[in-house]
């Protein structure tokens, strides 16, 4: 039992599982610090995974695929920011709408392009992109990319003028507005950043699996959201929580071979999130204006 956990393959597996949690969780810190709840992460993951698959399928180029994924992520996030920032509509409902839209549109075009609404054709993956051919997962460029983005995100949020403004807009939009910061503009940027990060994660999902399958996001967007909450709306915390979830899931995969309680272990991230939200393990406090549309007093 213990030796099946304490080995490099298990570590690699945990890291591999963590990537699609960590990237959207990082993105979500930008969106939520700016005051926009983004539960559309799930749908963005799905659409960008599909876009990546289609991009790679037609061009045979992994790079084009990744770019397709990121662009699709940004584009889908733009939907969310137009509905919730420009029109000040309910952010949760907008997210639900986009998730539903993603489920439908990916299957719709999957049927048209690949003649099956549930699977795409097989695409090339990241085999030739590893730094460590002996250990492809640890040499994975996405892993380094995630680490790099973590450092950049932390620095951007807490050490730059942009980060300060973004946080101001999420904490106290009236005050930020008074100081001449455009609340809507900052919020748009926050949401689009979360789309870009999540798009990258979607690209990873498709490349890692070598194909698109319907509903392949499989709740990862929501786990990422939970990771960001457990990480108390900070990049470092969000990634740490993602690693924790990756570890738990990896553990459940190992246990699946040995017993039948794996499905019960999959509940751990969700239970943990609920417990933390209750304030048992330190208070997790959202940005004060998170989820509240900002409407200027009309003159």
């Amino acid at each position: 039992m213990l030796e099946s956990i304490l080995n490099i393959a298990f570590l690699a597996q945990s890291l591999r599982i963590s990537i699609p949690y960590a990237l959207p969780a990082l993105g979500a810190t930008f969106s939520e610090r700016g005051g926009v709840v983004n539960i559309a992460l799930e749908g963005i993951l799905l659409i960008s995974a599909f876009a990546t698959t289609v991009g790679v399928f037609y061009t045979e180029s992994v790079l084009v695929g990744i770019l397709c994924g990121i662009s699709a992520g940004i584009l889908t996030a733009l939907f969310h920011s137009i509905v919730s920032v420009t029109f000040k509509a309910d952010q949760i409902v907008s997210g639900i709408g986009i998730n539903l839209f993603a489920l439908g549109i990916t299957k719709f075009f999957c049927q048209l392009i690949f003649n099956s609404s549930s699977n795409s054709a097989r695409i090339v993956g990241l085999e030739q992109w590893t730094f460590l051919p002996a250990l492809p997962i640890l040499g994975n460029p996405f892993l380094f990319c995630t680490l790099f983005l973590l450092l950049i995100s932390h620095f951007t949020l807490f050490r730059t003028r942009f980060g300060l403004r973004l946080r101001a807009v999420g904490e106290h939009p009236e005050a930020a507005d008074t100081l001449g910061i455009s609340v809507d503009k900052m919020r748009h940027i926050g949401v689009l950043l979360s789309g870009a990060f999540t798009g990258l994660a979607g690209a990873w999902l498709a490349l890692d699996q070598h194909s698109f399958t319907d509903g392949m996001a499989a709740g990862r967007g929501f786990i990422a959201l939970a990771a960001m909450i457990i990480g108390k709306w900070t990049p470092i915390g969000a990634v740490a929580a993602s690693l924790l979830f990756g570890f738990a899931e990896s553990l459940s995969l190992v246990l699946q071979e040995q017993s039948n309680v794996a499905q019960l272990i999959q509940m751990i991230p969700y239970l943990l999130t609920m417990i933390i939200l209750c304030g048992f393990i330190g208070r997790a406090t959202a940005p004060a204006a998170d989820g509240i549309p900002y409407e200027k007093e009309s003159a």
């Binding site: 939907f79 509905v83 029109f87 509509a89 309910d90 409902v93 907008s94 639900i96 709408g97 986009i98 539903l100 839209f101 489920l103 439908g104 549109i105 299957k107 719709f108 049927q111 609404s117």
Partner: peptide
């Protein structure tokens, strides 16, 4: 899947 797409657009339009 047109149904999902239409339902989603109804949601976004209505809000």
């Amino acid at each position: 899947e047109l149904a999902n797409i239409l339902q989603a657009i109804v949601i976004l339009c209505i809000i």
